[in-house]
Design a protein around this nucleic acid. Structure first.
Lengths: 203, 203
DNA sequence: AGATTTATGTACTTGACGGTAAATAACCCT
DNA sequence: AGGGTTATTTACCGTCAAGTACATAAATCT
């Protein structure tokens, strides 16, 4: 028996799977953005009615934030696995090629919902915009920390600037999301990845 | 006397300056995106009433498209001047440093309206989204043509891939727009520009 | 001066938005 | 079987969206 709230043991059982529905919501937000997504878009895609949505997920804003969490926890996500590669160069390599593969994947909307979910947006979306900016900054911070470690471990020259390297990589990854929205193919993104790596210092 | 429609000579004169009002509209679209901008946002910023807006600019969509034209025609715009530099490397250099300066400029919203005006959006914004994608692709095409010329003129090695160079540069520029939205400073963007140039072939 | 033309201000229409109330349905526990 | 609990359905609320009708104001043309 779990300690914190899980599926309740009494009452009418939920007729839909929350994770599946959340996945559908994620896809809509990803494709249309927060402002561009209406509750009808969501309930249509999720196959539920509004009261079910509100009971299960709170409101539109909270649903969005939960969808982002799901997005980042996906096993196909390339970011965290790339960080665990043995050298800074391999980290960058896996990050860039993983992004090329993932962002152009036609099994889901192109690009990255953390980047395009609420880039320019209404005041009503200010909270989710902030949340996305923080996610992006955290991602860069993680890369920076990883590169600091690489300097300590000697697989990056001591003269390397971990912060700038992380920001450079972040910039290219974010640009690749726009490219994917432009219709760029996986192969085209891989070529960009190759060029990006040419500026990346090796041990 | 101009051939095509200019300011009419009869009737009550317009009480506001169209270019000034269009500039205000641009700023709102830039900050809030197409979906996130309401007509009230626009009329408030432009200092006019809705009927004046509709009479002068058509509707929300046409107003947006005209605002984008204004954006690209701005003298402070860095893109076209950069293309005219004598060598491919200098083109890239001016493009990147121009973008660093422009996108973090706090005299207007951060980033680039062509990128963030309608990235992920509702179906109602599909037309403007397409228009923006086309603008971005045209920009890359112009860079590609410039780099083809550079190969012919010998300031890029014959082995260079003009298309990939253009896409790489486009990717970084687009990424810089996201960085600016994240709050990156001009100096931080300049550091990214420096790294980007390290992957750029010289003659 | 008066007719014509164009812009402005106010008020309005229609529909969609996010969100909710209330009644009903489906389950568990005793 | 019946009460307690939770989910679903339908219908609705108030607000704000984009866009417009209409009367009025300010200019030019004859």
């Amino acid at each position: 028996m779990p300690v914190v709230s899980c599926a309740p043991t009494v009452g009418r059982p939920r007729a839909f799977d929350m994770d599946t529905a959340l996945g559908k919501a994620l896809e809509v937000f990803w494709r249309k953005g927060y402002d561009g997504t209406s509750l009808s878009d969501l309930t249509d895609a999720m196959g539920i009615n509004k009261p079910s949505l509100y009971a299960a997920f709170g409101n539109k804003e909270q649903l969005f934030l939960k969808a982002i969490e799901l997005y980042e926890s996906r096993p196909c996500s390339f970011f965290l696995p790339a960080l665990e590669k043995p050298t800074a160069y391999e980290v960058a390599e896996h990050m860039l090629f993983g992004a090329a593969m993932n962002m152009a994947d036609s099994n889901h909307p192109q690009g990255c919902v953390v980047i395009q979910g609420a880039l320019s947006c209404s005041e009503a979306a200010a909270t989710v915009k902030e949340a996305l900016i923080n996610r992006r900054l955290e991602g860069e911070q993680k890369m920076r920390n990883r590169f600091e470690r690489a300097k300590a471990e000697g697989d990056l020259p001591a003269t390397a600037d971990a912060e700038t390297l992380a920001r450079y990589l972040g910039t290219v990854l974010q640009g690749m999301a726009i490219q994917a929205n432009n219709g760029a193919s996986c192969e085209q993104l891989r070529q960009v990845a190759e060029m990006t790596l040419q500026a990346f210092p090796r041990a």
